[in-house]
C-alpha cells in the first residue's frame, strides 16, 4: 500500500468514520482533509511526529474543537455538530495528552465525577449516599486501574504514572465503545509501561481504542493496525509490520530513532 488510504463511505459498520476533516488555526492547517475509519472493537495506533495533527484529530472527534470542514460519524450517527457531552453519552471516551485531572480532588472524587457524568442525577441537589451506584462504580474503576489503595489520595500527590492510570480509569466509566488515548505512555517508567500495555490488552474485546503513541514498541504491541500522520494528513496506513519496515515512514518519523 503505497498511497494514502482513504475510506470515505460512512456506514453503520464503522465505529468511527471521518470524511475530509480539516481544521485551521488561523493560517495554520493543523488537519488537512483527513478521512479515516475505525471498526467497532478495533485497536488502532496513530503515529506521527510532534505537530503532525494527532491531538487535533482527537479534538475533532470528541468535539473539544469543531472542524473547519468535513464530517464525523460515530456508529453510523453524524456527530459533527453534537456538543462534547452528547458524544460522551454515546460511548466515546478520551484521555488527554497533558493530564486534565482535578488535582485538588481525591482519586475517588475524580472517578466519582467520571461515573456521574454518564449517569442520571447529575443535577441532584442531594449529597450522594455512601452506597450510591456511582461511588461503587468509582471504587470498581479504581480497582481496575490498580489505584484502590490510593482512593483517598489527592491527585496532586500521585506519581505521574498513577495519574496516567487514573486518566484511563476515568475513561472507562460507563459503557465506553471507543476510547481515544492521547500518548498514555509518555513519561512512564519501563515497568509502568508494561503495566499499561497489560491494562490495555485486558480491556473487553468490544471496547475499541485509538492510541496516539510515540513509543513504537508500545503502539505495535497493542494495535493491529497503524495510521501514520504527517503535516496534518494521513501519510500511511498498514499493519505494524508494514509500517515498521516502510522506508517512507522511517524517513519521516523513525529515521533518527532507529537509524
Amino acid at each position: 500500500m503505497a498511497e494514502t488510504l482513504s475510506i470515505s463511505q460512512a456506514s453503520e459498520a464503522h465505529a468511527l468514520s471521518l470524511e475530509g476533516v480539516s481544521r485551521r488555526f488561523g493560517a495554520l492547517v493543523a488537519l488537512d482533509q483527513v478521512s479515516l475509519t475505525v471498526e467497532a472493537g478495533e485497536r488502532r495506533a496513530i503515529l506521527g511526529a510532534n505537530g503532525a495533527g494527532k491531538t487535533t484529530l482527537f479534538n475533532m472527534v470528541t468535539g473539544d474543537f469543531r472542524p473547519t470542514a468535513g464530517r464525523i460519524w460515530f456508529f453510523g450517527e453524524d456527530i459533527t455538530a453534537l456538543p462534547p457531552h452528547e458524544r460522551i453519552r454515546r460511548g466515546l471516551r478520551r484521555t488527554y495528552q497533558n493530564s486534565m485531572l482535578f488535582r485538588g480532588l481525591s482519586v475517588r472524587d475524580n472517578l466519582y465525577l467520571a461515573a456521574q457524568g454518564i449517569t442520571r442525577g447529575r443535577y441532584s441537589l442531594r449529597r450522594p449516599r455512601r452506597d450510591s451506584s456511582e461511588l461503587s462504580l468509582a471504587e470498581r474503576l479504581a480497582g481496575y486501574v490498580h489505584l484502590t489503595q490510593w482512593l483517598d489520595t489527592t491527585v496532586s500527590d500521585l506519581s505521574h504514572g498513577q495519574q496516567r492510570q487514573l486518566e484511563i480509569g476515568m475513561a472507562l466509566a460507563g459503557a465506553p465503545r471507543m476510547i481515544l488515548l492521547d500518548e498514555p505512555a509518555a513519561g512512564l517508567s519501563p515497568k509502568e509501561r508494561r503495566d499499561l500495555i497489560a491494562l490495555l490488552q485486558a480491556l473487553p474485546a468490544h471496547v475499541g481504542f485509538v492510541i496516539i503513541e510515540h513509543d513504537l514498541d508500545v503502539a505495535l504491541r497493542v494495535a493491529r493496525f497503524v495510521t501514520v500522520m504527517h503535516n496534518g494528513q494521513i501519510f500511511k496506513e498498514g499493519t505494524p509490520d508494514e509500517i515498521e519496515n516502510d522506508p517512507d515512514v522511517q524517513a519521516i518519523y523513525l529515521g533518527g530513532h532507529h537509524g
Binding site: T62, L113, A114, R122, A173
Partner: peptide, 20 residues
C-alpha cells in the same frame, strides 16, 4: 452532586464536558 459538578466545571470545564 450538583455542587461538586459545579466546582469541577469551575476548575476545568473542558474536562467536565469530556466526562459527559
Amino acid at each position: 452532586t450538583m455542587g461538586v459538578a459545579l466546582q469541577g466545571i469551575r476548575d476545568n470545564p473542558r474536562r467536565m464536558a469530556a466526562l459527559g
